[in-house]
Design a protein around this nucleic acid. Sequence first.
RNA 1: GGGCGCGUAGCUCAGUGGUAGAGCACUGUGUUCACACCGCAGGGGUCGCUGGUUCAAUCCCAGCCGCGCCCACCA
Length: 894
Amino acid sequence: MTELPKTFDPADIESRWYAHWEDEGLFRPERPGAEPWTIVNPPPNVTGSLHIGHALDNTLQDILVRHARLKGKDARWVVGTDHAGIATQMVVERQLNAAGQKRTDFTREAFVDKVWEWKAESGGQITRQLRRLGCSMDWANERFTMDEGFSKAVLKVFVELHRQGLLYRDKRLVNWDPGLGTAISDLEVETKEVRGNFWHLRYPLADGSGFIQVATTRPETMLADMAVAVHPEDARYKALIGKQVKLPITGRLIPIVGDEHADPELGSGAVKITPGHDFNDFEVGVRAGIKAGEMLNMLDAKAAICQTQDGLVPAELIGLDRFEARKAIVQRLRDEGFLVPFVDKEGAEHDAEPRTIQTPYGDRSGQVIEPWLTDQWYVDAATLAKPAIEAVRSGATKIVPKSWEKTYFNWMENIQPWCVSRQLWWGHRIPAWFDADGQAYVAETEEEAQAQAGEGVALTRDPDVLDTWFSSALWPFATLGWPENSDPTLGGRYSNDVLISGFDILFFWDARMMMQGLHFMKEVPFKTLYLHGLVRAADGQKMSKSKGNTVDPLGMIDKYGADALRFFMAAMESQGRDIKMDEKRLEGYRNFATKLWNAARFCQANGIAASKHLEAPTAELAVNRWIIAETIATVQALDLALADLRFDEAANSIYQFVWSRFCDWYLELIKPLLQGEGVAAADAEETRAVAGWALDQILVMLHPFMPFITEELWSKMGPREHDLIVAKWPMADARALDPSAAQEIDWLIRLVSEIRAARTELNVPPGARLALHVRDASAETVARLARQEAALARLGRVDQAQGDAPAGGALQLVVDEATFVMPLGDVVDLEAERARLAKAIAAAEKERDGLAGRLGNPSFVERAKPEAVEKARADHAEKAAEAERLSAALARLG
RNA sequence: GGGCGCGUAGCUCAGUGGUAGAGCACUGUGUUCACACCGCAGGGGUCGCUGGUUCAAUCCCAGCCGCGCCCACCA
């Protein structure tokens, strides 16, 4: 047993213990035959650094892993990083730019090598930071979404999905990011409301019989218009259907078509159709019989104007950026009389009507997204979604909190084809080869593709890579050895036990793991999906670098210790709510750690040491039997809370137990037994044994939340057979519960509390010792008073006296059947005591009368649950008796 | 337009069909060598508003007000 310093210094112990655990392989001790328990960590981006959201996410996971490990399971927390295609490519490109270079100065191979170099140097930052939080991950088997095994899994999945017809190449509109020069998925598009304009155009009918008016937010796209649509039943336009319009500027002849898409209520009721540059118009175009290959395209990859297939775009517009082109085209339309001016309320004329419009932006680049006609690879998500929906309906995967199920279903049921190809260099290269005619051959190797295509056919590999989420969707099984490992349960680790993620990646990641996991493993990837919220700034705002209101978790660890930060996260994690950063609270949990530290110091100083046994020691004294029962009750509460993933309840249970039960009462109550004179040696010994045992249980129970301080104290309390991280979780043994001991200590606590409150209220000097007389005491109370004499003397500063109290001023209080009288002689302010008693009487009477009122209501007695009536009767009798005894005490005061 | 969530003590948050809790902050006080990052005692809430269901509602239902988030093709 090593003596503990007076102040707890987290920094001193954290790195020491972490290194020890990791070096000794304690994050995944050998446990042959033990029940496997598995959780996979959401792989952070290699470009990332630990932010406060990671701190929450990983704390919750570590609590579950450590709990499972303490319970003796073969717990494994799979860890690794994600190659994060776009993000990582951007980081490396930015570095090149800073050095005056650019990506295209290099060959693809050379650039990708540079990214790997960057990854080797900087990609480990976040995993080092996770260690500071105390995360007990299986580092020995760390994975990367582009490591060799993973790449095999990705190839296999791509090829199989293709063979099954669930992955295909298609020409359709895609969300194109002109800044990054790649397609992105629906989920990577953020729609924002921006101030924009609404231009009203009039298109001349080809036969010269007049005009048809249309409105648009994107006038420049008129260069690729292929129709004007009106509602088939719209009386105003019905006769025009089938006529031709001669487009301004290009002079192209386009038809007026009838289509349900045109809403007679909106604008003029007629709408220009640009199938190559608008998702709605694409559908209208298809219905009008236009094939994707024929749709006019007027933009290049950078969203500058290019010549359309029919060559009708005037040369002076070619090469203009889309926003420049808009200005030029509006001006020309105005000059040529095709722009209908907007007249505002004051009667003034403008080119356009101001209006807020929904505009799509790329979530990475911040660029306005262009619907663009390209060939891309798509996954038939709707088909894969069906089993994923069913799995949640049947409960095979339970979503916690349940309220997210609806969101999950809603998204899954309306899911669109998932565009998985990206025009980037960094990522999993698509295993497809094209011949000269553009025919694709999909295979795991070039040889196989060649075999499909036939001898001598020249093949070129698809230059594109896969969406990062395509690979991370395989994380729950590809990290466990699939596909080499053909065991359908992957050694009992698939399905994973639980997945913890922020709700912000429910669609990006969780849903896609469900789809891929069910498709390839025929089982759900995880039995429970726990979704937590965001960590927000103190003022409730979302944290962001641009706002400059981020809180650095490492800074919090430096200031308060990792244990305090972890406990904060756990205590604040109630299901379904975001967490607001509250540094005062964090400070409070730092204080909690110090409190525990000092409790352990007290134990050390009083000969209390590491328990020799797992089971609770046998005990005779009520106080010891009571703390054993309280410990058991806390284990039960913790197990329940953790099973329900109620991290806040779990944290609060152990917090309350440690501070309010163990420190505030138990340690105070046993002081006379440890330090008093004339204590039987057996009693002192029993108490030391029980206290040591209870402290041990506290350390084990608190360990998942506060691993560092608990491990330190565990080691300092005496010799141990093993480290705390691999200790045994307490057994919730109901046999240790003792109602009579609990009742006695409960009575003692109430009596001491009453004495203290009364003393304070009457301004009895803290140091003054009072004589304690009792009247109307039952035999049980008399016995308890005798047994608890030392505790009462110490905590209440009272000395028990025989016989009735002498007449005169006294402090009186009622606990259960007995009235306690503490004579105060001349010191007492009789008026103050009368007032105090009167207040107590009033309170008891108020409750009594309230209960009487309820009992006097016939419908309550008739219709309420019998136990509710019974309880009301009992409470009423008790309150009535209390009021009477207090009144008697008041009367005695004279 | 659809969906979800939130509104409980000054602040941050739990909570239950039977008259409300925690941490911090606040007030008073400090005898007892574990701890002032502490102890003891205390004040403080018409549980957003309005109806309804019920013997009984902060908790269930409906509407309203306020706040936030997600999804969606109004040109």
